[in-house]
Each structure stands twice: as structure tokens, then as C-alpha cells.
């Protein structure tokens, strides 16, 4: 079990590293024409719409979202809410199983 825990910690650290490395190595791009700094780490979806505009400039989206989060702060609130709901359930699940499973695991060892 100890080896397994170390494995999990190692994998988790690798995930953290994989997330941090881009923040360090990606250099901010040259200034835009209007002198403003181009934004880094925007969503890939937004960039895809730029490619679409480049491929077919005459295309107009024919439907727009029914509800837009009123600011990026509100959007991040909703995203963190989504993650919290999921993580909360997973935590509850493992917590509620930990007691019963311990005896089972011990029997296995």
C-alpha cells in the first residue's frame, strides 16, 4: 500500500509540473498592433473561432448562447462550482467507504 501511495503522489506531482511548466516556458507574444499586450493562455475554443473566421470570413454564427456569465469572474465562479460539486461527491464517496473498506483491505493483505 505504501508503494501505491508513493506512486499516487509521484503522479500527482507530475500533473502539477505539467501544469506549471507551460506558465514558465511560454513567452508572452509580441505586442499587438494597438500596442496592447496579447493575452496568453486564452481558451482553445476562442482560438478555434479565429481559425473559422480566417477560413470562411463570411460565416456568421447563427445562434448565440441563451445565457452568458456576466463577467469572467462570474464564469470562474460557475466553473469552480462545477469542480466543487464533482470533487465533493468523490470525497464523500471515499469517506463513506473508507471505514468499511479498511477491514476488507486488511483481509486482503
Amino acid at each position: 500500500m505504501k508503494i501505491k501511495r508513493q506512486q499516487n503522489l509521484l503522479m500527482l506531482s507530475l500533473v502539477v509540473l505539467l501544469t506549471i511548466i507551460p506558465l514558465v516556458i511560454v513567452k508572452s507574444p509580441a505586442l499587438k498592433a494597438d500596442g496592447k499586450e496579447a493575452e496568453l493562455f486564452t481558451g482553445a475554443d476562442d482560438k478555434a473561432t479565429l481559425i473559422i473566421k480566417e477560413l470562411s470570413p463570411e460565416y456568421r454564427p447563427w445562434f448565440s448562447p441563451i445565457m452568458q456569465p456576466s463577467s469572467s469572474e462570474v464564469a470562474s465562479l460557475l466553473f469552480s462550482l462545477q469542480a466543487a460539486i464533482g470533487a465533493g461527491f468523490i470525497g464523500y464517496f471515499f469517506g463513506s467507504r473508507a471505514k468499511g473498506a479498511n477491514t476488507h483491505v486488511n483481509a486482503n493483505e
Binding site: 507551460p22 507574444p29 462545477q82 461527491f89
Partner: peptide
């Protein structure tokens, strides 16, 4: 059922995490 819930919750969490990548975009 609970395990099914965990699978759903895992998707919920992971698809909420916008993570920076080496290309300078987030996904």
C-alpha cells in the same frame, strides 16, 4: 449506483479545469 456517480463526478471535475498548455492556450 454510487460508483456511477463517481464516474460522473470525475468528468464534472476534470472538464471544469482549464489548464494552461505549452502552446499558450488553455484547454
Amino acid at each position: 449506483k454510487m460508483l456511477l456517480g463517481v464516474s460522473a463526478a470525475f468528468t464534472f471535475v476534470l472538464s471544469a479545469l482549464k489548464i494552461p498548455s505549452v502552446t499558450g492556450s488553455c484547454s
